[in-house]
Structures are given as structure tokens and as C-alpha cells.
């Protein structure tokens, strides 16, 4: 227990110093409306999640007769067993392949593009490309799924995992380039200049200077894209057909039909699919912090 409050306080020390302490604390004590609402909303956020987790450990018979908000007296893993036996591992692997297969190339090519856009500030072509990426931020995926579906059919990729991966990469690019370019722009010009004096090529400068310095932004971009692609529902829905190619969000919907009134099994399937992304978030948070502190210590 002790490390948690200590860690929290340490993390917040610079923030409270920035806001000015005494006055803000006086305000805080009086904001009853906001305060009670913040805690109320915490309950609103947590109740469904709490219900989900405890229900996933109840037997079906037990679920119908007990208070839905009371944890089960005897934990059972039979719901998880049922979910795993329903081909869960295959759907999970499909989602892993799609997410890794899309996030890594998307981040890599976005980083290269962001570097080029920042370094080629005087190049009209590069600025035009950047303009197209910025415009791309406004294109909703939902509006272009029909032509994407047509392109995938023409490429004879329908009902494959590549069919989901390729458009996922494309739609991750605009925001990734924007975030990474903003970050690369903050790298002091002198560093680029000294790399050039040392005779480094643009390619070398990109990997040896910009890449390590951009690490916190790269982590952010990877997490953001991974969450979006892991949770994607529309692309798998329209670009695949057979159950063997289903990713997790699609599988969840079919589990619900399959399990029907077996609410604990449905709860187990949702819990099981949420764990990886919450873990990634937990790891990423720490990574983010260490990435930032590493930058400060240099």
C-alpha cells in the first residue's frame, strides 16, 4: 500500500507547484458540487465494470438467484473455460495479428513522413502532402467503407486479415503524422545542425537523432493506434465473412448470440477481451513516464 500514495504524491508535486498551492486549496474545499459529482461519476463509471467482473465468476444458476452487485460466495472459472473452448484463442490471435500488423508499419511510415515534413519545411511537395494528411483527419472511416470494400474485393483480399490491416494502417496515418511532427518540431535546430556538420545523412539523422528523442510521442501514438485497431468493429464486419477470420469485437457480438441468457459467460467474454488493452495501458503509462524522465536526464 505504501508505494502507491508516495508515487502519486511524487507525480503530482510539480503540478501543484505550478498552480500555486494555498489559493487553489481554498477553492477546492468549497467546490462541493463538482466534488460530489466527480465521485458520483466514478461510481457510474465503475459499477458496470465491477458488475462485469464479478458476474463473470458466478455460475449461471447462482446468477439468477443472487443480488447482482454482490460478489459470488464461490468463484467459478467455468465461464472462462466455456469462452476459451468457443475458439477464443483463434479470435484473440486474429486481433493480435491485425493490431501488430497495422500498428508497427503505420507508426514507422508515419514517423518517416513526420520527419520529412518537418525537415522539408521549404519543400512545396512535402508541404502539400502534409496538407493532405491534415485534410485526412476530417475523413470519417464510416463514410468511405463502401469504396474500401470494393478495393479489397478487387485486390482479392476479401475475407483475409490483410484486408483489415491495410485500411487500418492508412487511417492511422493522419493523426500519427500530426502528433509526431509536432514533437519532432520541438527538437532544437542546433542538434540537427551539428549532425549535419558531423557529415550524417538525413537517413542517419532520422534514426540516430530524431527517433530516440521522439520516443515518448511514439509510445503515445502506438498506444492510441493499438487501442483503436484492437477495438475496431466496422472494418472486420464488412471485410471478412467467415468466423475463422473474426477479430475480438466481432466475436464478442457472436458470443452474445451464442450464449444467449448465459449472462456470466457473456461477462467472461467481455472481461477476457478487455484485459490485454488495460494491461497495455498500464505498461504504457509507466513507459511514458520513464520515456519523459530519460529525456530530462540527458
Amino acid at each position: 500500500m505504501t508505494p502507491t500514495p508516495a508515487g502519486t504524491r511524487a507525480g503530482q508535486a510539480p503540478e501543484s507547484a505550478a498552480t500555486g498551492t494555498r489559493a487553489s486549496r481554498k477553492f477546492a474545499e468549497r467546490n462541493w458540487v463538482g466534488g460530489s459529482f466527480a465521485w458520483l461519476w466514478l461510481i457510474v463509471v465503475m459499477v458496470p465494470l465491477y458488475w462485469l467482473v464479478i458476474t463473470s465468476f458466478k455460475t449461471q444458476a447462482n446468477y439468477f438467484i443472487t443480488n447482482p452487485l454482490k460478489p459470488p460466495s464461490e468463484f467459478t472459472f467455468e465461464n472462462y473455460q466455456l469462452v476459451i473452448e468457443s475458439d477464443f484463442v483463434r479470435y484473440f490471435m486474429n486481433s493480435v495479428i491485425v493490431t501488430v500488423g497495422a500498428v508497427l508499419p503505420a507508426t514507422l511510415i508515419s514517423f518517416m513522413a513526420a520527419y520529412a515534413v518537418v525537415r522539408g519545411a521549404g519543400n512545396r511537395f512535402l508541404q502539400g502532402v502534409n496538407g493532405i494528411f491534415l485534410m485526412g483527419l476530417a475523413i470519417p472511416l464510416q463514410a468511405v467503407v463502401i469504396p474500401v470494400y470494393l478495393i479489397i474485393i478487387k485486390m482479392e483480399l476479401y475475407n483475409t486479415l490483410q484486408a483489415i490491416i491495410l485500411p487500418s494502417i492508412a487511417f492511422a496515418i493522419p493523426l500519427s503524422v500530426l502528433v509526431l511532427a509536432n514533437f519532432i518540431r520541438d527538437v532544437p535546430k542546433e542538434l540537427f545542425e551539428s549532425m549535419r556538420m558531423d557529415g550524417a545523412t538525413e537517413w542517419g539523422t532520422m534514426w540516430r537523432l530524431a527517433f530516440p528523442l521522439t520516443r515518448p510521442a511514439l509510445v503515445t501514438v502506438v498506444i492510441y493506434n493499438a487501442v483503436g485497431i484492437w477495438n475496431g468493429y466496422l472494418l472486420p464486419l464488412i471485410l471478412t465473412q467467415s468466423p475463422e477470420k473474426a477479430t475480438i469485437p466481432l466475436a464478442l457480438a457472436s458470443f452474445q448470440t451464442q450464449f444467449g441468457v448465459n449472462v456470466p459467460a457473456v461477462a467472461a467474454s467481455v472481461t477476457l477481451t478487455t484485459v490485454p488493452i488495460v494491461l497495455l495501458y498500464a505498461i504504457g503509462r509507466r513507459q511514458l513516464v520513464s520515456g519523459l524522465t530519460a529525456g530530462f536526464n540527458k
Binding site: I109, S110, M112, A113, Y115, A116, V117, R119, G120, N123, F125, L126, V129, I132, F133, G136, I139, A143, V144, I146, P147, V148, I151, L166, P167, I169, A170, F171, I173, P174, V177, E202, W203, M206
Partner: peptide, 20 residues
């Protein structure tokens, strides 16, 4: 620099601009 931007550009044109 133009070569560096091309992979992202081609990918986005093909699956973003062309569908639009």
C-alpha cells in the same frame, strides 16, 4: 525527404483519398 514521405503518402492516397 520525398522518399521518406512516400510510403505513408501512397498508403493514405490508396485507402483514404481514392475511397473518398
Amino acid at each position: 525527404l520525398v522518399w521518406m514521405v512516400l510510403p505513408a503518402f501512397i498508403m493514405f492516397v490508396f485507402f483514404g483519398i481514392v475511397p473518398l
